[in-house]
Design a protein around this nucleic acid. Structure first.
Length: 576
RNA sequence: UGCCACAUGGUGUAACGGUAGCACAGCAGUCUCUGGAACUGCUUGUCUAGGUUCGAAUCCUAGUGUGGCAACCA
């Protein structure tokens, strides 16, 4: 079945693929022919910070639902607060959404471009008695508004006449009044158990320059007023957001109702588009923080190297770290969508990253903590180039040549002078395979004055060239290596989780930065095989038996990649 | 003492009145020129109490627990 029509999309909602509750909600609307069966969603970030993996979930849902129902998804800057917003964030947001693999086509919008219509609606609401200018200060308003368990009382300005309201509102716009001295309120219900219905603010005075509209405005609409208007004006059918907006929904509907009365709703293909809001639980991840405010603090206090620090859960941070966009999308699929406020284990994200990188990343050999290995029966001036498979998981990936010589770097942890029985790598008297090269037996160990192992000596089996046992004898361990003579120095950054506890925000008596992991970044110098110098910024390889590493997008120089550890290989049980 | 939500293994999620399944994690094993990958098997769950029903994770009632709501933030 080709799901190109609304009816087909509905048919897809069979018991086998019912989808999550948001999907079902939309499917029912489509089946009922609401909005003529059209589906238009939107992703509406405020350009006051960088997008993070929590936004990636929202993006996947917003764009994903549009795609599932053959609709479209708009990208909109929800920029109604000039105090915090900036053009640089707009650019970063666009780049991140695009990088994640989503396309908004021509449907890119700014809320600020709709300020005039918002203002018109506000004026209309004043005229119809639905809004009034209130002179109460914020402090005073606290008294009038009441608390959740008790009703509020009406503002003394609530009965102001239409003409006076119109005049005052016009003067607010003209900048005649100080910030905070007046605001425009909806006239709804001061006794409502829902606080948001108690005459919410529609417009406030802000004498700030807006990054987009400059000094054109002295008043700015609040989220509750602006958001439904933005959706309605764009003809959005399904306005999907996170749970904290659930209590705002009646107000959202109230604004839409007013627009409907005034004939302001968009008519598309003969159908009046009436947007509806629905809410899902935001993503929370172990060992990280997700609020833009906290991420901003990490950046401003220089506790990380910037919004795109590879330890940050930002899209740009994950990108620099080497997380493939496809892995992030896969993760968002796997976590599902519900209304339960859950916390996802980092292990799931890492599993998605490994899963993808295992299939796509080429293998290379590099040694992070070097120990010298000398092959006593190999000529000092000889060298050989062995064939190494680029990726056993990918038949297209081909092979490369790796240089071999008498002295090699091996990983210090791959040798144990006094091995326990579970250890089957190199030890005195033991034979291991030097990956792709040959079989090697350790015959002696060199120590320094403190008794520390400084070199391992041994002999190789000339019959085992390429790494195959000539007689089929079983070799338990295979270790990686780099020819010292050919080794390339590599600046390498080993990343770990940013926080030491699963929920850094749980203890309200402590600041979340107290739980920063001091070992979240370790810089080391590694030795890599020569081909590593050809790595392009952003390219990811697997250092065999260690981890996936990505050439840093910012710090790498031609011929000198800086390697970010993306994610380790899964540690096998029993290994040490 | 208000209103609005939510509750299924360790974690995340599925079930739409009819066998509680999947993934991640964990454990055990097979295989392997990566202690990776792949493959096999295993452990662990419906918040509580009532009710409706032949039958309830699912519907109803009450309770418990958790979260959100008292910015002129979004």
């Amino acid at each position: 079945m080709n799901p190109t029509t609304p009816t087909d999309a509905t048919a897809a909602a069979t018991p086998e693929s019912r989808g999550h509750f948001i999907y079902q909600f939309i499917a029912e609307d489509v089946a009922a022919g609401r909005n003529g069966g059209q589906v238009v969603t939107r992703f509406p970030p405020e350009p006051n910070g960088f997008l993070h993996i929590g936004h990636a979930k929202a993006i996947c849902i917003d764009f994903g639902m549009a795609e599932a129902f053959n609709g479209r998804c708009h990208l909109r800057m929800d920029d109604t607060n000039p105090a915090k917003e900036d053009e640089s964030y707009v650019r970063a947001i666009k780049e991140d959404v695009r990088w994640l693999g989503f396309d908004w086509g021509e449907h890119f919008y700014y809320a600020a471009d709709m300020f005039e219509q918002m203002h018109d609606l506000a004026v209309a609401l004043i005229k119809s008695g639905h809004a009034y200018v209130c002179d109460l200060s914020q402090e005073e308003w606290k008294e009038y508004r009441g608390i959740p368990t008790e009703p509020g009382i009406e503002s003394p300005y609530r009965k102001r006449g239409v003409e006076e309201n119109l005049d005052l509102f016009a003067r607010m716009r003209a900048g005649e009044f100080e910030e905070g001295s007046r605001c425009l309120r909806a006239r709804i219900d001061m006794t409502s158990p829902n606080i948001h219905f108690r005459d919410p603010v529609l417009y406030r005075i802000m004498k700030q320059s807006h990054y987009r509209t400059g000094d054109q405005w002295q008043i700015y609409p609040t989220y509750d007023f602006a958001h439904p208007i933005e959706d309605a004006l764009e003809g959005v059918t399904h306005s999907l957001c996170t749970l904290e907006f659930e209590v705002h929904r009646p107000l959202y509907d109230w604004v839409i109702d007013r627009m409907q009365e005034l004939g302001m709703l968009v008519v598309r293909d003969g159908h009046t588009i009436r947007p509806q809001q629905r809410e899902f639980a935001r993503l929370s991840l172990d060992y990280t923080v997700m609020s833009k405010r906290k991420l901003l603090q990490l950046v401003q206090d220089q506790l990380v190297e910037g919004w795109d620090d590879p330890r940050m859960p930002t899209i740009s941070g994950l990108r620099r770290r080497g997380y493939p966009a496809a892995a992030i999308r896969d993760f968002c699929d796997r976590i599902g969508v519900s209304k339960y406020k859950s916390s996802t284990e980092l292990a799931l994200l890492e599993s998605c990253v490994r899963d993808h990188l295992n299939r796509t990343a080429q293998r290379r050999m590099a040694v992070i903590d070097p120990l010298r290995l000398v092959i006593d029966n190999y000529p000092a001036d000889a060298e050989e180039w062995f064939d190494a498979v680029n990726n056993h998981e990918d038949p297209e990936a081909d092979t490369r040549k790796v240089p071999f010589s008498r002295e090699l770097w091996i990983e210090r942890e791959d040798f144990m002078e006094f091995p326990d029985k579970k250890f089957f790598r190199l030890a005195p008297g033991r034979e291991v395979r030097l990956r792709y090269a040959c079989l090697f037996t350790c015959t002696s160990v060199e120590h320094d004055d403190e008794g520390r192992v400084v070199a391992v000596h041994g002999t190789y089996d000339p019959e085992s060239r390429g790494g195959n046992a000539p007689d089929g004898r079983r070799v338990r361990g295979t270790i990686h290596w780099v020819s010292i003579r050919h080794a390339q120095p590599l600046e390498t950054r080993l990343y770990d989780r940013l926080f030491t506890v699963p929920d850094p925000e749980a203890d309200e008596s402590r600041h979340f930065t107290e739980f920063l992991n001091p070992d979240s970044l370790r810089c080391v110098n590694a030795w890599g095989e020569p081909s590593l110098t050809e790595l392009l910024p952003g390219e990811t390889v697997q250092f065999e038996r260690l981890a996936y590493f990505c050439a840093d997008l910012r710090l790498s120089r031609p011929g000198q990649p800086v390697m970010n550890r993306t994610v380790t290989l899964k540690e096998a049980r029993g290994k040490n």
